[in-house]
């Protein structure tokens, strides 16, 4: 888990480089979603350049596609392509690293980015898995502003109808969108109730920028049977760069040189702190507790607040092994 946190901060540094060089991107959302992406790609999902052609790879859709800048850094880190190329050519003339997911970039499943499409794509791949008896899972990441798109609710309805327990949606609830506070623009409160009303199992993650809380939530929902799962991850827009945090203006703000320098300084300081803390802890993960844990067949909310640390994640293989073990223990 500490490795994941450290990696997420290193990726934040990459994102800052990428968006600063290009003068483009959606840095605020990148920084709110990066922990979710890091945990999924390095601690949860069975997808990598090695198994990319396999029909059994896990599927991922970034429905809030404007934050592809963050996804590029994660996919580069994962070895799908040269990350430096993405940093240097993001949004440049003729580049394949454009401002929304496209399949010319290795590691991207579908061309997407118009909001409100990812969840329905995920319903399709999850249905296909059920039809074919394949064990892969589908993960979709949405934004809370995006939840105003009506198409999401058609997809939620179908996922509930077909009991797609191999589908996991994560909503990156950073509470801000381009025009200001989400609650002011178009209130998307009661997300958990909305998902439940459509037959979903819901888990809330109090700190969606805490890799430990996220990992615990993903591990738990992978075991859940009979319903699709939504993880409501409460994040901070611009997380990790002080002047960007919780500021709607950084939805797609462009840094001035002095702001770039400050962002780099803050992130590098944080990276050093994490390295120091990791050394001090002697690589030993500290087990924490879930504050609430309902029965598996109870659709009530679960809330993760502390570091569970029961898995030393960090590789595709370990995530896959964990899954197999979990499925075996649940008689799947």
């Amino acid at each position: 888990m500490d490795d994941l946190t450290k990696r997420a901060y290193a990726l934040r540094r990459d994102i800052i480089e990428e968006v600063y060089r290009s003068g483009a991107g959606h840095v605020g959302g990148d920084l709110s979603v990066i922990d979710i992406l890091t945990v999924l790609y390095f601690g949860v999902m069975n997808v990598s350049p090695k198994n990319w052609e396999s029909p059994d790879r896990d599927r991922f859709f970034l429905s809030k596609g404007h934050c592809v800048d963050a996804l590029y850094m994660v996919l580069g880190e994962k070895g799908f392509f040269d990350k430096q190329e993405a940093i240097e050519t993001f949004s440049a003339y003729g580049s394949k690293f454009i401002g929304h997911p496209n399949r010319e970039v290795p590691g991207i499943e579908m061309n997407s980015g118009s909001l409100g499409h990812g969840l329905a794509l995920g319903v399709g791949t999850a249905l296909a898995a059920k039809m074919d008896g394949r064990a892969y899972r589908t993960y979709v990441v949405l934004g809370d502003g995006e939840m105003a798109e009506g198409s999401n609710y058609e997809a939620m309805m179908a996922a509930g109808h077909y009991h797609l327990d191999n589908l996991c949606a994560t909503v990156d609830v950073n509470r801000l969108q381009i025009s200001g506070k989400t609650e002011d623009v178009m209130c998307s409160d009661s997300l958990a109730q909305k998902f439940r009303a459509f037959g979903w199992h819901v888990t809330e993650v109090e700190d969606g920028n805490d890799c430990g809380q996220l990992l615990a939530a993903y591990e738990a929902v992978a075991l859940y049977r009979g319903k699709p799962t939504a993880i409501i991850a409460h994040t901070v827009k611009g997380k990790g760069v002080s002047f960007m945090e919780d500021q709607a203006s950084w939805h797609h703000g462009v840094m001035k040189p002095e702001q770039y320098a400050q962002a780099v300084e803050e992130l590098e300081e944080r990276a050093q702190m994490l390295t120091g803390a990791q050394k001090a802890a002697g690589q030993q993960a500290t087990a924490g507790e879930k504050t609430t844990d309902t029965e598996a067949d109870n659709p009530g909310a679960e809330t993760y607040t502390n570091v569970p640390g029961k898995t030393t994640a960090g590789s595709r293989e370990s995530a896959a092994d964990n899954r197999k073990a979990m499925e075996a223990s649940h008689g799947k």
Partner: peptide, 26 residues
């Protein structure tokens, strides 16, 4: 019946879910 996917009266979902299915070889 196992090769029929009913999406209900939701044409937008019909199209995107179909694309998702197609991405898995359907």
């Amino acid at each position: 019946p196992e090769q029929l996917v009913e999406m209900g009266i939701a044409e937008q979902n019909l199209v995107t879910v179909s694309a998702g299915l197609a991405s898995c070889g359907k």
